[in-house]
Amino acid sequence: MDLMVTLGPHLLNGLALGLLFALVALGFMLIIGVMEVINLAHGSLFALGAYVAVALVTPEGGLRLAALGPYFATPIPMRFVVALLVAPIVVAGVGMGLEVCLRRTYGRDPLYGLLLTFGAALVIEELIRLVWGPTERFLPVPPSISGGISLGGLIYSVYRFFASAFAVGMIVLLWLFLQRTRYGALIKAGAHDSEMVRALGINLKRLRLLVFAFGTALAAVAGIVMAPIWGVRPHVGVDAVVPAFVVIVLGGVGSFWGAVIAGLLVGMVVGLTGAFATAWSLVSMYILLIVVVTVRGRGLLGKKSVLEK
């Protein structure tokens, strides 16, 4: 009983953390799965999403939008929702530009795509620094989802519950989109056999552009949702891209449910080590990755992927 009292809160916390890791990895998974491109700019696009949200939520958000007085007179919940809708569109636009640059690397050694997106990550991070400066920014959240809630004598973050629920919603919506819509079917088909999709008369170029835009928009959504937890600073993307990569490889490249399960596993391991062996909390996800990949090279639910070429 004592063990459960001690362990219970950390299991709950690990579960919430796992859902957030899964959310961070979703866009990354989509782009790797369909386009076989390891988008190292995912983290920078994650950061860009957070910064655009800051500009849309706070008058001193750095983009001189303060002139939009009436807009900033609206309540924070309204602006937060606007940020959740608009920032992903802005970042998707940047993602589309990046995809156009990537086209010359398709069908070549994956290293070319890797290098290009790595360069893009550096450029985006520096642009963020130029526009918003190097200092920390703060994304206010609506009062209804901020603060703490007492459960069993312990205070939990209300926002963290919101973020976890949001992550569940995003996972379900993405799954429904992939399973139940024509575009979802095309995306899956593109991931399975892109040449056949092209042979069937599908505009593969447009499909890839849309998938990339969708994946980067998901990165932005994750950036906004994580901003109140991880903070907003130019290099925050590094904090996102590394766990996202771990989650994808652990789950199996291209596997939707693999990514979700891996996210939960990573969250649980990081959460528990964070409580009981804190010095190991950051390295624990890598140890988990090593163990799983040693036993099962393609990750938990993976099939043959770009990483094996």
Binding site: I229, V270, L282
Partner: peptide, 8 residues
Amino acid sequence: GTRDFSPI
């Protein structure tokens, strides 16, 4: 580099 202090 800790970004999640909830367990702590």
